[in-house]
Design a protein around this nucleic acid. Structure first.
Length: 585
RNA sequence: GCUCCAGUAGCUCAGCUGGAUAGAGCAACUGCCUUCUAAGCAGUUGGUCGCAGGUUCGAGUCCUGCCUGGGGCGCCA
């Protein structure tokens, strides 16, 4: 199924060449959905932009384009308005044909990527021996959604969990493990750390209070780096415990991710340094091996170094990230590497990538993308914390959302005199609660900070997950009431688009492809949210104005098709946000 | 000191390569359930787009300076 926008762009290009000659070949027709539906469905702003180049006034240019524009099969006759806007309304018959194509397609007529890429989405990335907390929420949810969109578009996506499973803190943790759980290293499956946060805090407390403990910790770091078997075993026990805890969260959120932690790159670190040296980039500075950066200065105004090997011979996260970039390009053969991390790491990535580029590791076709996001704040605008000032555990946050969704649901059931099974209540609370958390996060432009509010995300009205889930439920309600089998709706029955709300809904349904293309390119899931919210609004307007089951044929079947397409679009769109739908709620 | 991001309605936020009277949601107020779940729909009220210049036929959007908030800045990740 061909996108309307794509078709129109082609026609505009032909008209531009026909009107002004071959030198306008390839000119962007500046075709966008109209700023106001009263004016048009689509508008082209190209006439204004060509004014200077062609030395004519924009209205005259617009008139000439329109004279050469062949769109009679899709649109009403184009009109020129204002300073030179070319306005297009699509025809109901065209809409009907497109909807039909959508109806009979198993992916709603949405195109796959013409050139599928190998793409890594690096997201979530918690630290071993620490619990996932609110700081991991956005990366996990946004990264998953981006991966889902790219997968749906047909790209080969590798979801990578770059967990923090290496570093000096393991000396402390392993030392504490030996001290507090000595049996863990000798007895199989003897370890059950339970609360990892507590374990970490206790280890830290011991480290801070005891000089002898600190010394043993330092020795453990050396033992770990030199591959001491016993120490590695302790390390892997800690990793395994953490994995179990992480997996519970990922299961709850329905997120798939492949672990490839920092330790994976350990064997590659020495060659990072030697390669940089061979490339002539490496400089020794105060005993450390560094690459001086271009465009980054320190407090004195001198070039800032990127340290790739510390003066004690150890490596740091810049080295690991360099090794990762190189590996992902050379071994994974990636075309696009997407890092979903907080905005605070923007400098770090800019620095690492600069060095990788200067080392010649990044071919021109490879795109390195940082997908930054703002911090999660409480309703007071400060960093989101528990009442006692602790970091909010992700598990607690999700449980709280589910509990609140349940309280809402139970209050409603009581109010409406409904009785539902415990299983139903659990299922709905869980889906609504988690959907609310995900949607609230995804629906904001990720670059700004995010004020976390249970009350707002779980609100039963407005731009929230429950609103959209409810729109979907309404369609399923129609199908239940009328005993409708959406799979076998009369494909021969004509689509009738007469009511304003039917037309508006139809147009909205056909714009899904444009939104997906935008998200694929710009990696802003909030645009998908915005679209789904508007689609839901348009459906609710349609639902309010147009009776479906009571309508006469062929209107009845036509409206059923519209309802079904809306539901399928919502289901697919929400699934790309990592949100499942409900049949009833 | 340098640097990155943000500043749009009372609150939370959209605003896509600059384009027509700046949009939602919440909150407030008014209507609409004998009809597919009213978790809905229709409507009213509400904005010097941080400030000041500049570029442009046209600026919330681009440039410069300033103010405010948040982050980052050599051996943590």
């Amino acid at each position: 199924m061909k996108s309307t926008l794509t078709t129109l762009k082609t026609r505009f290009n032909q008209a531009l060449v026909a009107a002004f000659g071959a030198e306008l070949e390839g000119t962007d027709p500046m075709l966008v959905p109209a700023s106001n539906p009263k004016f048009a469905d689509y508008q082209s702003n190209v006439a204004m932009s060509l004014s200077k180049r062609l030395g004519q006034n924009p209205r005259a240019i617009a008139d000439q384009i329109v004279a050469h524009l062949e769109v009679a099969d899709l649109c009403e006759p184009p009109t020129v308005a204002g300073p030179g806007f070319i306005n297009l309304f699509v025809q109901p018959s065209y809409l009907a044909a497109q909807l039909r194509a959508m109806q009979t397609s198993d992916r709603l007529g949405l195109p796959q990527a013409k050139h599928p890429q190998k793409i890594i989405v690096d997201f979530s990335s918690p630290n071993i021996a620490k619990e996932m907390h609110v700081g991991h929420l956005r990366s996990t949810i946004i990264g998953d959604s981006i991966a889902r969109v790219l997968e749906f578009q047909g790209h080969d996506v590798l979801r990578l969990n770059h967990v923090g499973d290496w570093g000096t803190q393991f000396g402390m943790l392993i030392t504490y493990l030996r001290e507090a759980y000595p049996e863990a290293l000798t007895t199989a499956n003897a370890l059950a750390l339970g609360d990892l946060t507590t374990f970490y805090k206790q280890a830290k407390a011991r480290f801070d209070e005891d000089e002898d403990f600190r010394e043993r910790s330092r020795l453990e770091v050396v033992a770990l780096q030199s591959g001491n078997e016993d120490t590695l075993k302790a390390w892997s026990l800690l990793c395994e415990q953490s994995r179990i805890a992480f997996q519970e969260i990922y299961d709850l959120l329905d997120i798939r991710i492949t672990e490839r932690g920092e330790s994976f790159y350990n064997p590659l670190l020495p060659s990072v340094v030697t390669d940089l040296e061979a490339a002539g980039l490496l400089v020794e500075d105060n005993g450390a091996k560094v690459v001086f950066l271009e465009g980054f200065t320190n407090k004195e105004g001198n070039p800032l170094p990127l340290i790739v090997q510390k003066s004690d011979g150890g490596y740091n996260y810049a080295t690991t990230d360099l090794a990762a970039v190189r590996y992902r390009i050379q071994q994974d053969h990636c075309d696009r590497i997407i890092y979903v991390t907080d905005a605070g790491q923007a400098n770090h990535f800019a620095q690492v990538w600069q060095v990788a580029r200067r080392a010649g590791w990044v071919p021109d076709h490879v795109e390195l993308v940082h997908v930054p996001f703002g911090v999660v704040q409480g309703e007071d605008g400060k960093k989101f914390k528990t009442r006692s000032g602790d970091t909010v555990r992700l598990r607690d946050l999700l449980d709280e959302a589910i509990a609140r969704a349940r309280a809402d649901l139970e209050a409603r059931l009581k109010e409406e005199g409904r009785t539902e099974s415990e299983e139903f209540i659990q299922q709905v609370s869980r889906v609504v609660g988690l959907a609310a958390v995900k949607y609230a996060d995804l629906s904001q432009n990720r670059t700004s900070n995010y004020i976390f509010s249970y009350d707002k995300m779980l609100a039963l009205q407005g731009n929230t997950a429950p609103y959209m889930l409810y729109a979907y439920v309404r369609v399923q309600g129609i199908s239940r009431k009328g005993g409708i089998d959406f799979e076998h709706l009369g494909a021969d029955s004509p689509l009738v688009l007469e009511d304003e709300t039917e037309l508006t809904l139809a147009k909205s349904l056909l714009q899904f492809d444009e939104i997906l293309a935008a998200v694929e390119a710009d990696l802003f899931p909030n645009r998908l949210c915005q679209y789904l919210f508007e689609l839901s609004q348009k459906f609710n307007q349609f639902y309010d104005r147009c009776p479906v089951l009571q309508a006469e044929e062929p209107l009845r079947t036509s409206r059923l098709v519209l309802a079904d397409l809306t539901a399928r679009t919502l289901k697919l769109g929400l699934s790309l946000l990592g949100i499942p739908v409900l049949e009833r709620m």
